[in-house]
Computed example of a mutant assay.
Amino acid sequence: MSAAAEPLDSEAGYIEPEGLGLLRRRAPGQSVMEELFAVRGSSDARGAVARFFGVSLLDAASRPWYWGALGERAVGRTLSALGPEWTVLHAVPVGERSADIDHVVIGPTGVFTLNTKRHPGQKIWTAKGTFMVAGTRYPYLRNSEHEAVRAGKLLSAAVRHHVTAEAAIVVVGAQQVTVKEKHRSVAVLTERQLLRWITRRPVVHTQEQVALLAAAAAQPSTWRRAPSELRDPAEVARSFEALHRLVEQARRRRVGWLLAMPAALASAVGALPF
């Protein structure tokens, strides 16, 4: 809903059915964590030798899902600093397949759809409709624009008033983000810029409007005609945190072996007779 839209009120607007609002409990990154477990499972299937040498638990198929979850969880932590006048939904299932919106934020300054992209150590360059990571072009801007337009239409249908959603790509962990020229409708931000971008905009919604929009957005049927069963967020988060500890443990073990190898080699060379 833009500043020019008709005001919402509790008589004409959307009223949240009692006992619903299931999306409010979704964990940041929940969709990608579920995909990760579908690809590789949640247990450690390595043997004793593999664990001893710190062999990675992640293969080429599971690694992007794991990285994606780390990025969305980081943005989720940033968004948790917003005050009580804001509603933040994570991993919102949308459409007929497995698509989701990483984060939907609703508050006094508008409705926002956030697309998190984690590219640790990479250089990001963007201008108009081009988004490049280390020299490779990605369709992030087009996808984010489409996501916001779809979110606006779905929320408009739910509250029976025009709703405009604004899009942003939130880049996590990049070495450098260069915005040469701004896109017409999608902001490209770092984690550090996110809260300022959301909160320093003009106020366009009253407290009542925010409440009505938030109630509609928290309803799974707003986003999908036949919402799928939603897994327990706490269970998914616990499984991911356990996997994350194992992944970090394996990484530290690999680093330890790499650091130990030169010393062991030097010791062996020193023991050789000359």
Rank of each mutant, 00 (worst) to 15 (best):
L189W: 09
A165S: 14
I198T: 01
T206R: 02
E191A: 00
T206E: 06
E166Q: 10
E208V: 10
A174K: 02
R192G: 07
A187Q: 13
G173V: 01
V159R: 04
V163P: 07
A215Y: 08
T178K: 12
Q207F: 11
L195M: 02
Q207A: 15
A165E: 11
E166R: 12
L189E: 06
L155K: 09
H161F: 15
T190H: 01
A174Q: 04
H161G: 07
E208M: 14
V186L: 13
K182S: 15
L213M: 09
V210A: 03
A165W: 11
V177E: 00
V204W: 10
V171Y: 01
L189A: 06
L212K: 05
E181A: 13
W197D: 08
Q176M: 12
A157T: 09
E208A: 15
I169W: 04
V172F: 03
L155G: 05
E191M: 03
Q209K: 04
T190G: 00
H162D: 12
A211G: 09
A216R: 14
V159P: 05
H162W: 08
V163Q: 05
V171N: 01
V177G: 03
L212C: 02
S185M: 08
V186Q: 13
Q175C: 01
A214Y: 12
I169Q: 01
Q209I: 02
V163C: 10
R200G: 01
R160M: 10
V188C: 06
V159G: 01
A211Q: 14
G173L: 04
V204E: 03
V210G: 05
V186I: 14
R201P: 12
T199C: 08
V186D: 12
V186F: 14
V177I: 11
A158P: 04
H161N: 11
V188G: 08
A187G: 11
L189G: 04
A168M: 08
L155I: 07
V210M: 04
Q209W: 08
V170N: 00
V188I: 15
I198R: 01
T199L: 05
V177L: 05
I169L: 09
A211T: 13
R192F: 06
T190D: 00
R160K: 11
A211M: 12
G173K: 02
V204Y: 05
K182N: 15
I169V: 14
V186H: 14
L195R: 01
L213F: 13
L212N: 01
A216C: 09
G173H: 04
Q176L: 13
I169F: 06
L213W: 12
R192I: 04
T199D: 00
V204G: 03
H183E: 11
